[in-house]
């Protein structure tokens, strides 16, 4: 029973990370129909920069902020300089973002090398604490991570549901032409949303670098998990990303704990099953 609960907690931790990574990805897709294959690279960039900032300033929250801002800036630059040029040609955008992710990954490897980085935690989070009832220790940072993901999720929901930007995003998800007809500067809105997606990815990167660690390859790992999460949850839906992350995170950890050889098969089976019964994803809208 204790083992089961620990595995569940691990699953929730992973789900929180997956959600943080996938939320920006699905936000960008929802508004712009852009599949940003450089999303993982943005995440890794955020992680590296966050590491540097935290090391220099010695203040962990500043690292999260720094990593998030760096990735937000890079994301805005990508949309402004390259992807925005062929808005509407989704296939070309996707291919261009693949090229960008190859370049970014290689340049980061050049600068930061092939070694593994872990962000030093503040003392308050560095240890573990005893879980009530179970009497088992569990790393504090992992619980912080779960709380962080919940806070980000709620904030994101509030931004989309209650703010002007959110109203514009929702309107744009339904009908992008209408936004243009209403006189909005769509190009600017797209850059802002790309920056927002980058911010989420960058912060996820720093959090991943704190709770786990980052290295070359982390970018692809999170890009792929984001893909699977949004395929399962439904493209463009933040709620879907949360649900998808929960399903995939838990499935992966249960798989690892109870059937280590075939953990990946569970993830895959969930994806195929969802595609078979609901091709648009659990909370997604129909493609047509």
């Amino acid at each position: 029973m204790t083992f089961f609960l620990i595995v569940t907690l691990n699953g929730l931790t992973l789900a929180a990370l997956y959600f943080l990574a996938a939320s920006g990805f699905t936000l960008i897709f929802g508004l712009m129909r852009t599949v940003n294959m450089a999303h993982g690279a943005l995440l890794l960039l955020g992680g590296y920069v966050g590491f540097e900032v935290a090391k220099t300033t010695g203040f962990w929250p500043l690292g999260i902020l720094g990593g998030g801002l760096a990735a937000a800036f890079a994301g805005a630059l990508i949309q402004f300089g390259i992807l925005g040029r062929f808005q509407g040609d989704e296939l070309r955008q996707t291919l261009a973002s693949i090229a960008l992710s190859i370049i970014m990954a290689d340049l980061m490897l050049w600068y930061w090398g092939g070694i593994t980085y872990q962000v030093a935690l503040p003392d308050a989070l560095a240890g573990g604490f005893k879980l009530p009832l179970l009497g088992v220790g569990y790393a504090s940072i992992r619980l912080v991570l779960i709380i962080f993901a919940v806070v980000v999720g709620i904030t994101l929901w509030l931004v989309i549901a209650k703010t002007r930007l959110g109203a514009i995003i929702r309107a744009g998800v339904d009908d992008r032409e209408m936004l243009r007809a209403l006189g909005f500067d769509v190009a600017k809105i797209f850059i802002i949303v790309f920056a927002l997606g980058g911010l989420l990815a960058g912060m996820a990167g720093v959090v991943a670098a704190s709770a786990l660690s980052i290295a070359p390859g982390t970018d692809l790992q999170f890009l792929l998990s984001s893909l699977v999460v949004v395929i399962v949850g439904g493209m463009g839906s933040v709620g879907g990303a949360a649900l998808g992350a929960l399903l995939i995170g838990l499935a992966e950890q249960y798989g690892l704990a109870y059937a280590p050889t075939y953990g990946v098969v569970f993830t895959f089976a969930i994806m195929v099953f969802v595609l078979a019964v609901r091709p648009q994803g659990l909370l997604g809208r129909s493609e047509t």
Binding site: T94, L224, I231, Y262, G263, V265, F268, E287
Partner: peptide, 26 residues
């Protein structure tokens, strides 16, 4: 992938490809 077109097909075939990679590794 039969019901997926465009970018959806890209994502799904990519996910299948990577799932096969992990499967062969394990």
């Amino acid at each position: 992938a039969r019901r997926s077109q465009g970018i959806y097909a890209i994502m799904i075939t990519l996910a299948i490809g990577v799932a096969f990679f992990y499967f062969t590794r394990q």
